[in-house]
Structure formats: structure tokens, C-alpha cells
Simulated assay, not measured.
Amino acid sequence: MLGTFQQSAIRIEVEAPASVIRDSLVRLSHLRRWLLPQQFASGLPEELHQGLIFNSSIGLVVIQHQVDVAEFNCLRLLLSQGIDGYHEWYWGEGWVQSRLEGISVLPLNLSQSFSLLRLREFLASQQRGEN
């Protein structure tokens, strides 16, 4: 794997209950709306579940995801191809935490920060009833 070993953990406060945060992280229709510019393969089930393997892409970089854990307050994805590592999500009432670790040519910390800001905006719009 080409690239640099990178790791990042970020926790933010959000104005959303845990159930809404969970839906935003495991329902593909929600992921597609806030996790831009990442594109997901078509034909996937509506909700991520343990054992599911799927691809996404950021530009020309393809990332394979394997759902290792999908529980009521935790999601862990094993990553390969464009990122060789893992991405963990934890959440509760009013907060979400992301931990990303892997080897990649992509700037993981920057993309993780951008994604969390997009998630916060998406959750705020959900609470306002805009989506």
C-alpha cells in the first residue's frame, strides 16, 4: 500500500438524538446526502449491516468497506484499497465521535474533519425538518 500512516480521532457535539445520528451513519440514503464527494456503488441495501462489503470512491480512488460492527451506538468499517485501515463511529445523545486510522495517499484528517462538519450540518437540517 502506498501512502502515509495516518490516524485521527474527532468528537463533536451535535443537536440530534442518538437515533437520528444512527440513521445518518447507517442508512445509505442519508450517507449519500451528507458524505459528499464520496460516491457509493449502486444496488446496496438501505442499511449497513455486519458483514456487508461494498465500494465507494472519491474521485479516482476506490475504497472497499467491510462492515465489521454495526450496533445501536457503534459502527466499525474495515477499509482496503484506497485506504488500508479502519473507521470507527460512536455516538450518543448530542455527540458523535469518529476515529480513522490507515495508510493512504489521501489526506485523512482533512477529509474526516470536512465529513464531520457536513454531518453536523445534515443533522441540524434534519432537526429543522428540511430533509
Rank of each mutant, 00 (worst) to 15 (best):
N131R: 09
G51F: 00
C74G: 02
A9G: 14
V69W: 08
V69K: 00
A124M: 03
L25T: 01
H87A: 10
L117G: 13
Q112T: 00
E47W: 11
Q6C: 07
L48Q: 00
Q81V: 15
L123V: 06
V69N: 02
S57L: 07
M1D: 11
L35V: 03
P37I: 14
L60V: 15
G129I: 11
E46A: 09
R118M: 10
S113C: 06
Q97V: 02
L35S: 10
H65V: 00
Q66C: 09
S98Q: 06
R22M: 03
I10R: 07
Q6E: 06
G102W: 07
H65I: 03
G85N: 00
L75V: 14
R22C: 11
Q39G: 05
S115F: 04
E88Y: 04
A16Q: 03
V14F: 00
E88V: 11
F114G: 12
D84K: 02
V61N: 07
Q126T: 10
L116P: 12
V61I: 08
W91I: 00
L35Q: 11
V62N: 11
V67Q: 02
S57W: 12
E88I: 08
L77N: 09
V96T: 05
I53F: 07
Q81C: 13
R120A: 09
I10K: 03
G82C: 01
V26E: 13
G129S: 04
R118N: 13
N109Q: 14
Q39Y: 06
G51K: 00
H49N: 06
L60H: 15
F40Y: 09
P17I: 04
R22F: 06
S29F: 06
R22L: 13
I12E: 06
S98N: 08
R99Y: 11
R33A: 13
I21E: 03
L116V: 03
E47D: 07
H49F: 12
I58K: 02
V67S: 08
S56K: 12
H65K: 02
F5V: 01
G85I: 00
S115M: 10
L110H: 01
S19T: 05
I12A: 07
L100C: 07
G102Q: 05
N109W: 10
R76W: 09
R11D: 15
